[in-house]
């Protein structure tokens, strides 16, 4: 298991990661979510002992990364930067990696097959497309058959086919009992793959919870209803004290509605329904609001506690979740004026 403890990284005047603490649960896909510049890549580099933390620590199964014997057999990582020499063939790139950790050379052919690069194994990686480069990076991560996998923005720049492939790969890795830690700046991507979420903004922890909890807390459900007898149904709903909202394209939404209840109600009043579909507000919106607030909070006010208006950031996962529950969800706790979202670069 990966444990991140009070991790802080400062580059000159930039505080890239700020007192970050969380644990990556075993055997599931954990999404590491945050807008560009939130500190995801920096955190991942510190997990691999590539960047030195200003303070704090990371342990993998209780040990620092550099204390792992043959680390590729514990953790496989795909980092954001393309990390291959353009003049070396895909096969030889994997070969030197394999040799550094005493992984048999036969495994190189195996992972090349796994990622579908066997045909181009003897070609120089300099001529690879972005998708092929990404596959080579994933092959390198899988090389040591590690229990933990870490991917930094793996679908960035991939075509739809590649994106689908990466999603399925991550799910199947978790199904094999592996721990998958994957970063993204897109909520929609995480919603499709992650079982657990760690959300950061401006280097700080914003949320650490299961995907289901995130959905429950952040997406307000409603039911879309269409009927040829709208007046009758609206009356029936009003009598049952269920609030509604008309839709521009006809029909209406029942806020926080339960489809079974609405269907029964319609039947009791002899009303026919042409549509009865549960809907969810976009998670992307919830995520944007959450991070926009943190961005504004961090850039607009260096000492937020002094003016007493900004809420203190959650100290750790436990506090974060309790806070969320108390105040009725993330939107509530972090809801300040509409945040100027930092431009994504």
């Amino acid at each position: 298991m990966i444990e991140v403890h009070q991790l802080t990284k400062r580059y000159g005047s930039t505080l890239a990661v700020d007192g970050l603490s969380f644990q990556v649960p075993r055997g599931v896909v954990t999404g590491f979510l945050g807008p560009n510049g939130a500190g995801k890549s920096t955190t991942m580099r510190m997990m691999l002992d590539l960047d030195r933390p200003t303070s704090g620590s990371v342990t993998i199964d209780g040990r620092a990364y550099h204390q792992l014997h043959q680390p590729l057999k514990h953790i496989g990582a795909l980092l954001e930067a393309k990390a291959v020499h353009p003049g070396r063939t895909a096969y030889n790139h994997l070969l030197w990696l394999a040799r550094s950790n005493r992984i048999p050379a036969g495994r190189v052919d195996e992972v090349l097959g796994l990622v579908g690069l066997r045909e181009v194994a003897k070609r120089k990686s300099g001529g690879f497309s972005l998708g092929m480069g990404q596959r080579l990076g994933i092959a390198a991560a899988l090389l040591g058959d590690p229990k933990i996998l870490m991917f930094d923005e793996p679908v960035n720049g991939l075509d739809p086919e590649g994106i689908l492939w990466v999603r399925n790969l991550m799910k199947s890795l978790a199904q094999e009992g592996r721990t998958v830690f994957v970063s993204s700046h897109l909520m929609s991507e995480m919603a499709l793959t992650a079982d657990h979420l760690v959300v950061i903004g401006q280097g700080r922890l914003l949320a650490n919870l299961s995907m289901n909890d995130f959905i429950d807390q952040n997406s307000h459900g409603f039911v879309r209803v269409r009927t040829p007898q709208p007046e009758a149904l609206l009356d029936a709903l009003a009598m049952a004290r269920i609030s509604t909202r008309p839709l521009a394209e006809g029909g209406f939404e029942v806020i926080d509605g339960n489809p079974a209840q609405i269907g029964d109600l319609a039947r009791d009043h002899g009303i026919s329904l042409h549509e009865l579909s549960p809907q969810r507000a976009s998670l992307e919106e919830a995520f944007m609001q959450m991070t926009a607030d943190s961005v504004e909070y961090r850039t607009g006010d260096i000492h937020p506690s002094a003016d007493g208006t900004a809420p203190p950031p959650p100290e750790d996962a436990g506090v974060a979740r309790t806070g969320a529950a108390d105040s009725g969800g993330w939107g509530a706790q972090w809801n300040r004026t509409s945040g100027k979202r930092r431009k994504e670069s």
Binding site: L50, L68, L79, A81, K82, A83, V84, H85, S100
Partner: peptide, 18 residues
């Protein structure tokens, strides 16, 4: 220098952290 210019140094140091 090739490792630094290509970014491969990160793969190297992840494989050989000592």
């Amino acid at each position: 220098g090739n490792e630094y210019s290509s970014g491969m140094i990160r793969a190297t140091l992840a494989a050989v952290p000592q």
